[in-house]
Each structure stands twice: as C-alpha cells, then as structure tokens.
Write a protein that binds this DNA or RNA. Structure first.
Length: 496
RNA sequence: CGGGAUGUAGCGCAGCUUGGCAGCGCGCCUCGUUCGGGACGAGGAGGUCGCAGGUUCAAAUCCUGCCAUCCCGACCA
C-alpha cells in the first residue's frame, strides 16, 4: 500500500521522451516522429490528417520550389472543380476501372438527392479534358500547359500518415500537344523536373524509370516514375509523369485543325507530386533521434539557443537575435528559441524536429565573441553525439550558406550510399527473396502480368520500374525462365 | 473484407479476475529557485470510464448488442 517511488528518473519515463528506435519497429518510429515533431496528426474521420504548422511549412517550401520549376518550363496555374459528374469518369474505360474502387461519391446536396451523383475528384484528367476540348480548336492553341495545386480524395483501405491518406494535397499538371513527339518531350521534361527536385531539394537520389504495364496509371500509355529507397529498403513512388496518348482526347473530344485543315486528336500528358513526398523525407533521412530535414525544405535551417540565467539570459538572447538578423541577411531561415525551457530540452527538441544546424550562445561565448555550432547529422563523436565547434560570429554568418549546401550534399551522399548498399543484381530466385526483404533487386523479367503476380504473391515485391539508365541486357526471366522483356533489368522491391 | 488488439483526464497507462469514494506518470496553471544535453520544490485545475440496453441496494468492473480506432494481409500518389 506504500506509494510508488518517484518514477521521475526511471528508464521507462526517459523512453517516453524519445521515439521508438527505427530498428525495433519502423512503423512505430514513423508515427512517433510525426507526432513528436509536430508534423501532423490524425483527423477525426478515418484516413484524414491534420497537417500542423511545422509540417505545412515544409509543404510550402516544397510547393514553392516545384512551382518555380513549373513556371520556368512555361506552365500556368489554374484551378478545376472538386466535384465531377460521375458520368465523366466513365468516359475513359481504363480510367474508371482504375479509380472506381476508391471513389467518394456525393449523392445528396441541399437536403435533396442529386439527379446525377458527383464524384469527389480522385484526379482531374476528366474535367481538364472537358475544358481542353473547349479551349482547343486550332494547332495554334497548342501546346497548352496547365498545373493545378489542389486536394484529391481516394478512399483508402489502409491509410498511413502522409504516405496514403484518404485526402491528400498535391499538384497535377495537365498538358495537350499536337503530336506524340511533343507530348513525350513534355512527359520526359517533367519527369526530369521531379528527379532534379528530389535530388537537389529533397536530397533523395531516385531510381528513375518507366512503369511496367501492370503498374501504369489508369488510362495512360506510358508512366514514368521516380522511386526512392526508404530506410527499411522499401521503395516509395514519389512522383509520376504520364503520356496519355490520345486516350483522353478521344474520350473528351479534344481535337484541333492542323495546318492542312484536317481534324486531329491532341496528345495529352499529366504529372503529379503529393504530400507523400513529406513521408519520403521522413523515411529516407530520419534516424533514431527523429527527423532529419534537408536544408532546402527545413522551416528553420538554423536554431539559436541562448543560454544563461537572470540578466545573463537577457544578454545572450539579445545577442542571439542580433546574430539571427545577420544570418537572415544572408538568406538563412533562423529561429531563436526563447521558450522557457532548459537548454538540454531545446537541444533534444530541435534534433527531433530535424533542424540542420544548431547554434548555442552562452555567457562564456558572449564574453569571447564566439558561438558554438553543431549539425544534426554527419559530424558525430564516439558517443554518437553531435560535435560542437566554436567559431566567431563572422565565421558563422559568412560561412552558413556554404555549410548548408555541404550539409545538403552530405545527405544526398548518405542516401545514395544507403541505396546502393541495398541494391543488387539478382539472377536466382532464392537470392531474390533475400534481396527484396531489405532492398532493391535488379532482375530480368518476362513482363507477363501473371508472372508479376506470382512474384508478388511469394515475396510481396512488385516491379517498381524499368530504369531509364543502365546497361541493356536480356536473358531468361528470373521467375519463369521465359525470354526477358524491356531489354533491361527491372527493379523489384516491396513498396509503400 | 479476413486475422489480431484497444477504447478510463490533453498524452501514456493502472484499476476489471473477486462489483463498494476515479487513480498514477507526463503535460497544463500559480509562485519561487534554476539554465553549456530532456531542472527542482510547494500549491492547483482537469474525467458523461467509447455508445445503448440489461443484472444489482450498488457497475469502469458482470451480461448482451452496437460503434470507433490502431496494427497485420488483399487495392493505391
């Protein structure tokens, strides 16, 4: 009946302060990180998500980077409606078939049953097609290059924060062109934009390639994808670009008169990247201490923690603000942490939130005219703790952009090394099973859907893509022995 | 839709076997002391025990039904 001894310092209690180790349970780790880093939380309805300010700030940075690239390649933003008449979806046979199982349908409005149900957009090819048909009549109207930032709904059986939620935010590009050559050029251009963005902004080196027929977008002739490797060796499709041929042009009557006065069908494309990319950031860079953000998408690139008590704290805080101002002049995103918490708490908190650089500024530093700098990853001592470097304020300010750039490259190199260590060319089934359990397997495949299905049944691995780069090769299918297709090895992996 | 689990304070949980005042830790509020790796003391606020029935003098606890969520599989950016 005695009161339990104070558990304030017990190991159990300490573990509550940190996230589940990734190696122990990556699923629990992922959920912990999202919660503790205050990126997002679950909404009241199944599969919905509230993106909190810190998570949304990442999305805004990502949006701006992508949007600039879209504008630079001649696209204009527009908005298309959330509600789509159900009949529209049906116009493209493969398209409906692909999306039918995950549609949310509105049957009532204003208290009355609707004459025709409205589908909540799962993607906008159909409405855009309808509008393109109106806007295009001459070859002079082409190409038409549109992008839309919006939300879409796909009724998911098994939601996962950021990776697969019922509603998600994304960008969908839609373009129409005179012929296949022009449309393919666009498809590949935006494919390239995604790949470049992933590497140069998100610091994730992608495997770029084309989807096999079974994995193609519903209604597309060709689908190109960038696939990232997550810390558990699984693949994450992070952006796709589709050549739609004249499929939607036929379904929606998107026609134009060419120079010879003959009526032609336009060739269309579409391409998208979503909030799933935030999931990719978490899973590609994170570690047991939490989030690791690439500097170009980090809401705070540098956090300054003033240290001291009483009057001293006031002085170090003032100096921290001054240094922050100098860094801002260099275009650095800086936060001065003035919360009423202990320094140790703040160090751990910002590590958990993945801030690339931390600056400590205490009375001793102030005296000496220096600051202490530590970076989130890549510079640890024997205990795995970030090394602390003392440098002058001038050194800190002048060198910060270069440090952030170097840090970005470090993350890329780290992710690249990890990916390559977990990738292998595989030529027998037994090795294949072992390989896809923890990484990517490059294997020859016959391309038969039934054969793909057999592989998936046994290993849960699917063909992620046929890489765009790499040596040409052919031989016997790894699973059935039939002659290989595609002229290249196919990347197989388990996928999110 | 199959398999597993859980619903008790903002969060994490105990209490249920054997019915009897609603508990603990963290967080939150106030005051004071603290501040270079997750500070401490004192005081305080906070709960229709998932929902609906039933049994009982008495239900978080026992019985019945329902609902929701999470995890594992089949579909997906």
């Amino acid at each position: 009946m005695s009161a339990p001894k104070s558990p304030a310092k017990s190991p159990q209690n300490r573990s509550e302060l940190s996230v589940t180790p990734m190696s122990e349970d990556i699923s629990a780790w992922y959920n912990d990180v999202i919660a503790r880093a205050e990126l997002a939380e679950r909404g009241p309805a199944k599969g919905t998500m509230v993106i909190r300010p810190y998570g949304y700030a990442i999305w805004e940075l990502l949006q701006r980077q992508l949007d600039d690239r879209f504008k630079a390649t001649g696209h204009q933003n527009a908005y298309f409606p959330l509600f789509i008449p159900e009949s529209y979806l049906r116009r493209e046979a493969e398209h409906v078939e692909g999306f039918a199982p995950e549609l949310a349908v509105v049957t009532h409005g204003g208290g009355k049953e609707l004459e025709e149900p409205l589908v909540v957009r799962p993607t906008s090819e159909t409405v855009v097609g309808e509008m393109f048909a109106k806007w295009i009549s001459s070859y002079r109207d082409l190409p038409i290059l549109i992008n839309a930032w919006n939300n879409v709904v796909r009724w998911e059986l098994r939601p996962r924060m950021f990776l697969r939620t019922t509603e998600f935010l994304w960008q969908e590009g839609h373009t129409a062109h005179v012929d296949e050559a022009d449309a393919m050029e666009e498809t590949l251009r935006m494919f390239g934009v995604y790949d470049e963005f992933a590497r140069n902004v998100a610091a994730i080196p992608m495997v770029r390639g084309e989807k096999t027929p079974g994995e193609r977008f519903a209604g597309a002739k060709r689908t190109f994808t960038i696939e990232g490797m997550m810390r558990d060796g699984k693949a994450l499709q992070s952006g796709t670009s589709h050549y739609l041929g004249t499929n939607f042009a036929h379904a929606f009557d998107i026609t134009y008169q060419d120079e010879q006065n003959t009526l032609q069908h336009a060739h269309t494309t579409s391409w998208g990247m979503s909030t799933r990319m935030i999931g990719a950031l978490i899973l590609a860079h994170g570690d047991d201490r939490g989030l690791v953000l690439p500097p170009r998408l980090a809401p705070h690139q540098v956090v300054i923690v003033p240290i001291g008590r009483g009057d001293a704290l006031g002085t170090t805080t003032a100096e921290a603000q001054r240094v922050a101002g100098l860094l801002r002049e260099q275009g650095v995103r800086v936060e001065v942490d003035v919360r009423d918490q202990s320094p140790g708490f703040k160090f751990n908190d910002w590590e958990l939130k993945g801030v690339p650089m931390r600056v400590e500024l205490g009375p001793r530093d102030l005296e000496a005219g220096v600051v202490v700098l530590a970076q989130r990853v890549g510079d640890e001592d024997e205990d795995g703790r970030a090394r602390k470097h003392t440098l002058s304020v001038a050194e800190l300010v002048d060198g910060m952009q270069a440090r952030l750039d170097a840090y970005h490259e470090l993350l890329v190199a780290r992710a690249e090394a990890y990916r390559d260590e977990h990738s292998a060319r595989i030529d027998d089934l037994e090795a294949f099973d072992a390989q896809v359990a923890h990484g990517f397997a490059y294997a020859l495949h016959c391309g038969e859907p039934t054969c793909e299905a057999t592989i998936q049944e046994r290993t849960r691995a699917t063909p992620r893509c046929v890489p765009t780069e790499g040596p040409e090769e052919s031989g016997a299918c790894i699973a059935c022995g039939a002659p290989s297709a595609y002229g290249r090895r196919v990347v197989f992996a388990r996928a999110y």
